[in-house]
Write a protein that binds this DNA or RNA. Structure first.
Lengths: 254, 254
DNA sequence: ACATATCGTGCAAAAACGTGCAGAGTCAAG
DNA sequence: CTTGACTCTGCACGTTTTTGCACGATATGT
């Protein structure tokens, strides 16, 4: 057995069982403990594992950069996400906005779904990679630190290439007279542009946005095709916005 | 038996069993060990395999199923990342590739750095958001599931808008004669395009890539301005690639 | 604190290595 | 057909790497 092979075997044991006991391995491989110890020392020098008395353990998993921003997600948002995801048909091209609710949409797309999702949010895109049969496209541009979406002239120019069947857009204000609004002008521009190019426009509407108005208009109600709300918020939504020519799609509950 | 035939046989053994032991093969084929060793040396020179004491193993790249997940980041990559990050000057526009080593570059950029980083990898972009004073831009396109970068015609078209001062590019093969290579043609195209548009091109070179050749060329050595390596790998790098007109930038150690 | 297991280092034998060289085979020009 | 240049292969020889063992030092557990 080649020494290189032996080292690979050691790393493989480590990743499978989480630890190495020098004596056991030396028996299994039919070489002396000294040899195993030497191998372990060299691997440790290369930082591939951590040497301990009696054997070795995996190197400290201090680097867990994932989930660096533990997104606060509420049950309501998850419910909306599930309802929105259920509207996606195979073969469609769908635009998905950024934000926590849109992330919930991504999380609830059924596996094996065969369609194309376009997004301008890197963390939504990362979440979508979970789905093996999905085509994911990212719209580039300058990345906004707070909302984790791309915006700006570049993003707008890029968007011009897409004509999605449907889009799911987040908003911070949903007011019967003031329309759909959000708090950042750049983001509002992107959302406007997406809605203008989409076959149908769905707003992800968590209940705390009802009746609120933010500084920048995304769309009037005439431009919006549907509102996705939780079951608990259905009545409130209908009371406030039901007279508008805009479908209200409520989740069936948990 | 012809030497060419023998070499094919060697490669076939390698792909089947994952390693070659010179003595065994020489016995099976009825030729001397010297001949096998010569063959192995030549194949290694061409980057088709990696020579080790006692025989040969596959060149360290794509076909390592279990290492893919476990070896997310090694100390060597972190070291390279730190060295690369230290080369970024305030005010510069820098392109950062995708991949684990590039991610380490992102992690090691000092806070308060005022420059612009362009990347086609959403997870690198997410990491860069840590830096409050940095401007981050994403190059859009179709997202590759495996490598987590965007590629394709859209990405290439978009790249045309950038002229970075410097770029940091990952690769899976670094061979004195075969140049810089990687395992996916779409990714190779993007890397090529970036290098062509950058003031200077730096390759993130972890040691297991030395002497390896992958299927698609990224650049010849003439097009590359520098190689970033760990301290431990500096001598190997100089020995193998030092004669090329290409700077070797070693980290100062941990 | 003491017994036991494990560790690191120095050392020597064995295995594998690279290199130079010579014989055998190949091929093309004369 | 002969000759000479060339390549491929195996062998000899000195060098390097790997490996197992001995021995004193260090860590672990009761």
């Amino acid at each position: 057995m080649l020494s290189h092979e032996r080292k690979r075997h050691l790393l493989s044991i480590l990743s499978k069982t989480g630890s190495i006991i020098a004596k056991d391995v030396s028996g299994d491989l039919g070489v002396s403990e000294d040899t195993i110890r030497r191998d372990l020392r060299e691997l440790a020098r290369g930082g591939r594992l951590k040497r301990v008395h009696g054997g070795a353990v995996p190197v400290a998993t201090a680097n867990a950069p994932f989930e660096r921003r533990t997104v606060l997600s509420t049950p309501e948002k998850a419910e909306i996400g599930k309802r929105a995801a259920s509207m996606i048909e195979p073969g469609q091209v769908v635009f998905l906005d950024g934000g926590t609710t849109a992330l919930e949409v991504a999380r609830n797309i059924p596996s094996q779904m065969r369609s194309t999702v376009v997004t301008h949010s890197p963390n939504v895109a990362m979440e979508l990679l979970r789905l093996e049969t999905l085509t994911v496209e990212i719209v580039g541009g300058r990345l906004m630190r707070h909302s984790i979406v791309t915006t700006g002239a570049a993003t707008l120019a890029w968007l011009d290439r897409y004509r999605p069947d449907m889009c799911f857009i987040g908003a911070t204000g949903l007011h019967p007279e003031q329309g759909v609004t959000t708090g950042d002008s750049e983001e509002a521009e992107v959302k406007r542009a997406v809605i203008a190019r989409s076959g149908s426009a769905m707003i992800l509407a968590s209940s705390e946005k009802f009746g609120a108005v933010s500084s920048f208009e995304i769309a009037s109600w005439a431009e919006v095709d549907g509102l996705i709300v939780s079951k608990a918020a259905e009545n409130t939504a209908t009371g406030l916005l039901g007279h508008l020519n805009c479908g209200i799609y409520a989740s069936s509950g948990r």
